[in-house]
Design a protein around this nucleic acid. Structure first.
Length: 409
RNA sequence: GCCCCCGUCGUCUAGCGGCCUAGGACGACUGGUUUUCAGCCAGUAAAUCACCGGUUCGAAUCCGGUCGGGGGUACCA
């Protein structure tokens, strides 16, 4: 029975790195009809960031990484103390300035075969030191609580970041002291930032919530993350979560650390936006504007404008930036020539009795045919920008009245 | 410093001894479509497979070393 877990510590809001580990655990569980467990490891009371626990749930729920069981280490203090007593009784642990340390063997070697790369990793025990298992505040350390919980929760595979390789000998010796069976260790290469160092808040790694708020689609983010260190073979790149579950296999996880590159994420998000059904996109965009941008825009206009924007945006928020110039009054300063064109445009458009995109465009054509007028000038006049949504169509949707109103300023 | 992991285009990667004068994707660039911008289509550049040595008829693929990068070295996880 496959049972895996993610063990986030609520000391910050998860970024792409932590979340990709969650994804791999989730996929591995689903691919093997196993269980996916969420365990909040909140034993560091000084670095605890209260909001981050909520963010962990929010991110997993948003991405649809649903868990089967849930635990929190601060609820389990008695369990750790009980196990401490066992170790002290067996002389495997001893007190040291209010804390308790585990007696590590100093001779011999500690080794295991890691699932990633199927290689044996060996540590010389002479390098090891007695490490703290219970801190003087009574809370267990990661090394202690993690091992006890993994055993008690019958974790079959410890899938975690590579940064834990060097503490694995500690874990193994703890398992041995208790006489417990080892899980399979699976150490995922850490995702590096553009600066080639481990992704962290300090180096500007955004949280997953940031990406959501910037208008990235969960499908795109999931797809992008899964490809950071894994690939399904062939030249497949756009993969749904269902396909990932079907295809996911630890043997296809790379041994080298990938560098995170937003450009590809942006491209992929655009692909998912273009693929989306118009109705889905519309409701996503409405939700985004209302809840994230906290702004109000005419819903029926959004509905009509989204199809024009679909191939032109890479994030949901881009829609807002594209539509905003048409929907709100802009302070546009025009040159003398542009003003003249605007005035003539007003005259020509106001006598139009059929307000259609073709009719509007034919007016534009008059200018473009006889003079050296380019489309960009019209954009400038209407929006203050030199490009944007298809102009005649957009003006048709806006309506004659509003269009002429814009021209008056 | 010491311990451990890793090393194919700028980036994500395919590759598992001959199919590789190394394939795909992003990004960059060029051209086409066109009512701007996108999109779409076609194409170009981009990796002496980190380096050196070995094994082999044959190596990106196996072995050793070097160098480079990363991670760890906490009463943080």
């Amino acid at each position: 029975m496959v049972r895996v877990r993610i063990a986030p510590s609520p000391t910050g809001i998860p970024h792409i790195g932590n979340t990709r580990t969650a994804l791999y655990n989730f996929l591995f569980a689903k691919a093997n009809s196993g269980k996916f467990i969420l365990r909040i490891e909140d034993t560091d009371r000084v670095r605890l960031v209260p909001e981050s626990e909520k963010a962990i749930y929010e991110i997993l729920r948003w991405l649809g990484l649903n868990w089967d069981e849930e635990y929190k280490q601060s609820d389990r203090l008695e369990i750790y103390k009980k196990h401490l007593r066992e170790l002290v009784d067996k002389n495997f642990a001893y007190e040291d300035s209010g804390a308790f340390r585990f007696r590590m063997p100093k001779i011999g070697r500690t080794a295991w075969v890691d699932e990633i790369g199927k290689k044996e990793i060996i540590f010389d025990n002479s390098m090891q030191e007695d490490f703290v298992i219970i801190k003087s505040d009574g809370y267990p350390t990661y090394n202690f609580a993690n091992v006890i919980d993994d055993h008690l929760m019958q974790i079959s595979h410890a899938i975690r970041g590579e940064e834990f390789i060097s503490s694995t000998p500690k874990h193994i010796q703890l398992y041995n002291a208790f006489g417990w069976q080892l899980p399979t260790f699976v150490h995922l290469p850490v995702i590096l930032g553009p600066d080639k160092t481990k992704l962290s808040k300090r180096h500007g790694a955004k949280s997953v919530l940031d990406y959501r708020d910037e208008g990235y689609l969960k499908e795109a983010l999931l797809n992008f993350m899964v490809l950071l260190g894994w690939n399904p073979g062939g030249n497949r790149e756009i993969i749904s979560i269902e396909e990932m579950i079907k295809l996911f296999d630890l043997k296809d996880v790379n041994t080298a650390s990938p560098i995170f590159d937003v450009k590809k994420l942006e491209w992929m998000n655009g692909v998912y936006i273009r693929q989306a059904k118009p109705d889905e996109l519309i409701s996503n965009i409405k939700y985004q504007i209302l809840n994230i941008k906290k702004n109000y825009l005419d819903e029926s206009l959004i509905q009509k404008l989204v199809p024009l924007a679909q191939t032109r945006i890479t994030t949901l928020n881009d829609f807002y930036d594209l539509a905003f110039p048409f929907l709100e009054d802009q302070h546009i300063s025009l040159t003398k020539e542009e003003k003249e064109i605007a005035e003539r445009l007003y005259r020509e458009l106001s006598i139009l009795d059929k307000w259609s995109n073709e009719a509007i465009f034919s007016v534009f054509k008059k200018f473009m045919g006889s003079e050296k007028v380019k489309m960009s000038i019209f954009y400038k006049i209407f929006t203050g920008k030199t490009s944007g949504l298809p102009l005649p169509q957009t003006l048709e949707i806006l309506g004659k009245e509003k269009t002429l109103e814009r021209l008056k300023n």
